[in-house]
Design a protein around this nucleic acid. Sequence first.
DNA 1: TAAAATAACTTGCAAAATGCAAGTAATATT
DNA 2: AATATTACTTGCATTTTGCAAGTTATTTTA
Lengths: 149, 149
Amino acid sequence: MQVKKSYREPTFRCSCAITSALDILGDKWALVIVKQMLFEGAETFKDFTESKERIATNILSSKLKFLEGLGIVLKSQKPGNKKTNYYHLTPKGIALTPVVVELALWSHENLRTLNPTIGDYEELENIKVNKEDYCKKLMEAYRKKRASL
Amino acid sequence: MQVKKSYREPTFRCSCAITSALDILGDKWALVIVKQMLFEGAETFKDFTESKERIATNILSSKLKFLEGLGIVLKSQKPGNKKTNYYHLTPKGIALTPVVVELALWSHENLRTLNPTIGDYEELENIKVNKEDYCKKLMEAYRKKRASL
DNA sequence: TAAAATAACTTGCAAAATGCAAGTAATATT
DNA sequence: AATATTACTTGCATTTTGCAAGTTATTTTA
């Protein structure tokens, strides 16, 4: 019996590192999901569906499986609860922090005329002067929070 | 008479800066095109179609128009040639350099097991220790090259 | 402990994006 | 004048995404 998978296997267009990253992350949802975990504390399936992006459950389900299959996301069961699953970033997923932060910076500086609903974020100037440090702290904070489960 | 556009207008899912960036860049091609301009000297329609990613001409055409409409790419005519067009990154497009560089770094460290054709790139360790400087130099080099047309 | 609520899905179908092959139109070259 | 080149467009098949409505297995509440 054949099992129909709801998510695709990754295929790589060529040997370019950047293109290969986009073979995996180049869609509307993958990095949004990573962002929700990293910045917004999303952990459970429900957390994601309730976010302001309103991801559809079928897409969410298949993307989480896809990212899990790649070792970017790890699925585990909430202790003492057989129903609720936890989704967390693996080190490979946490390593995407600088990518997401750079997108945020670019967006704030270049997209606010196109999407005026993007707010002015004071802290941004401070982040800009030491991105490295900011990312490191963010990643450390995520790791810590995860470890304390 | 109605003009059928081959490219979509950008629509923003919400007020999140990161999600908004992905509303524009979250697909298989946008950042590949930016990369080709930034790192591989792609300037003309032909340059893009001959790249190793083998982008289809209809996709290329619509993506270039889309990016042009957003002020990320600027189209101009090659001097003394009425046929060939030049496509270049605007400051808004050049500002994507750090995003692309972070993708490259992440890919080299996390994707080489999945796509072994991604080569080992010695210089990468040096780039890692001073990303800021590397990006600045890259952007400056691109600007210079563009100015000398 | 039966009924209701919740979490994490799956399925079906419509719409949009992408991919491929084959055009076309306007230059440029021979 | 004939051929080649560049920058496209068009049509159609495939894949991905979006939306609404299920389904199943656990909790929770009355």
